[in-house]
Computed example of a mutant assay.
Amino acid sequence: MIPHDPDEINRLIGAFTDLQEHWENDPDAFDWSRLEALARAGAHAYNECCGPSFHALALDGIQHGEFHERFLAYSLNADFDPFKLSKAGNTAEEIPVIDHASLADSALWNPSSARMHASLMELARQRFAPLADEIRRSNPPSSHPLFMTVEACAESLPVDLLERISPELAREHHGEARKQSVDPIEGYLSAAEVVVESNTKPYG
């Protein structure tokens, strides 16, 4: 695709919406290869300086299901970088290309979101664990080039890894205060339910 082309983003999200409607209407007959092809086409559609990324438009703030779970998996396989920071406008500050906080909140009660969140945590461990001590040794840690990324995507870093980098960030993004900020009407999966749901594979 043409980098940072908002028209291309519109075409991608239009195709995504069409495929989602096909899946909702007849999930058993849905051709997953079409979604995989779309994920490859939009893997780097970050829409820098022009608005939200393709992935933010597709995944943020919605109730996730198998369709979204597969889309994220296909996107990651196509080298989508969920920890990339991007400007949504010409003067806006850099933000993650997906909303990690929203996904972490959804993961507390939605099994698909929980598996999506787990996949990002696994990727975060691979990405940031080798650099954790280096970041923390920086004086101050916030001066390290990756600290801004860690802070912006903190909800998708495993708590033990985040504690190695910054105990303050770990308390802020994984502590009781954060859990209490989630809408209590949604409820939570118990620890046992999380284990059961995480072992339930929606697809092979």
Rank of each mutant, 00 (worst) to 15 (best):
A92L: 13
F80T: 07
A170L: 03
E8F: 14
S75Q: 04
D133A: 15
L120S: 07
S75K: 08
P3L: 08
S86K: 14
L189K: 06
S33P: 00
A118H: 11
P52Y: 06
S112T: 04
Y188R: 14
S166D: 14
H4D: 15
D5K: 02
H173I: 00
L169M: 06
L123G: 05
A152E: 11
D79L: 12
Y188I: 11
L162C: 02
I2F: 11
C50I: 03
D133G: 09
M121Q: 15
M1V: 12
S190Y: 00
S106Q: 15
D31C: 03
E48T: 10
L108I: 07
H4S: 15
R70K: 13
H100M: 12
Q180V: 02
R164E: 10
S198W: 04
V159G: 00
N10Q: 14
G61C: 03
S181V: 02
E155T: 10
S102V: 05
V159L: 00
P27R: 05
C49K: 14
R34S: 11
F128I: 03
K87T: 06
P140L: 10
E94S: 15
P202R: 05
A45L: 02
E155L: 03
G61A: 07
F147H: 10
K201M: 14
E122Y: 10
E197H: 14
L169F: 07
L157G: 07
D183R: 09
R178S: 01
E36K: 14
